[in-house]
Design a protein around this nucleic acid. Sequence first.
DNA 1: GTCTATAGCCCGATAGAC
DNA 2: GTCTATCGGGCTATAGAC
Lengths: 217, 217
Amino acid sequence: MTLRVKPVAANVKRSDSRERLEHDILEAAKRLFAVRGYGGVSLDHIAREVGTAKQNLLYYFSSKESLYRRVLHGVLDVWLSYMEAITHHADDPETALRKYIAGKLRFSREHPFDSRVYANEVVSGTPLFAQEIKDRVLPALQADIAVFNRWAQQGVCRPVDAAHLMVVLWASTQAYADYASQICLVLGKPELDAEDFAAAERLLLDMVLRTVLTKAD
Amino acid sequence: MTLRVKPVAANVKRSDSRERLEHDILEAAKRLFAVRGYGGVSLDHIAREVGTAKQNLLYYFSSKESLYRRVLHGVLDVWLSYMEAITHHADDPETALRKYIAGKLRFSREHPFDSRVYANEVVSGTPLFAQEIKDRVLPALQADIAVFNRWAQQGVCRPVDAAHLMVVLWASTQAYADYASQICLVLGKPELDAEDFAAAERLLLDMVLRTVLTKAD
DNA sequence: GTCTATAGCCCGATAGAC
DNA sequence: GTCTATCGGGCTATAGAC
């Protein structure tokens, strides 16, 4: 009897297919949770979306709630990756704010479903997510606020209420994903395009720089 | 045989009790829909909240969807009643903007569940509400935008992009209701108080006046 | 890993007694 | 107007064949 080593290629392929299906499930779940909320989505909906049976979902994820948590975790990964502009440009307020606003608007444009899953969870009072927000979002936000306060001490910025400024920036940029359907109704077009995002960026940056910088443009 | 007129008092009382229960149902439904979304709430939840049976809800409202529509309709009544500041002070931009921002923040503070029901519906893509938004919200917003454009023509305001400015104001003020749980986490307190709303009002008004007015303060 | 089958429960809505 | 009873179906999750 000879030892047969499992062919590596087959292993990789199987693992690839497993990861691809897992990825597809997470993407479909994200889109559905974004639109209908946790309670408005059934495992059957998600399974049909990816062309498998709901029982198979419970093979990859131990429960509906754990699938949802995995979706939220992935959403937070993406969200945070767009949020590092301020601390990365802590030497220049104008550049930092420009990159921050541009980045958050790009997140709304490129990842609208991530944004809406997050919005749904927050509107619900973060029942399943408070700890992860405390652990991951809060430090990032507090680092940004600290940078603002340092700028104020150095005299390069007016002493604004940095926490509330972050709320304004956060809400305004996120609106272009979460409330897109209403913004479209107001603008009278079926969906937002590049020019709408550019106009939003111009206005928001203008508002923030006028408020924050000590010198006029 | 004498004609007996039904006692008026009893009529009024019965009608009062009917209206009170209907009102209680709508309030409970609003709170639950706000937190869990349409699909996350059952008629049984709502009925238990008001101390009756779900079959009784279907006596007052013909279906779950019609109950939800009634909730949305009432939410819009309240929402619109806080939105008339700009057109009512069309002669003075600074007063109009001050009253508008104060009003929208007061709405977020006094009617957080109305705000969140509305947010849930918009995040979902307004599946049941697009027509009513077109009929009732859009004219109000477009009237506000027209006022801004007139101000710009008259030279009392800089020519801002009024539609996007409305988005910023709308999103920023509404955030203090819809995203309160996250703002609380950032501020490190269990709930928002009067001083938080005052700080938000100061910052937002400051930002908008710096952006909109032609002369400096 | 994917399938069928099914347990056990909750859902919206209806029927009919009182 | 409120009650009990119930229909038909969808839900999450599990069991077990292959």
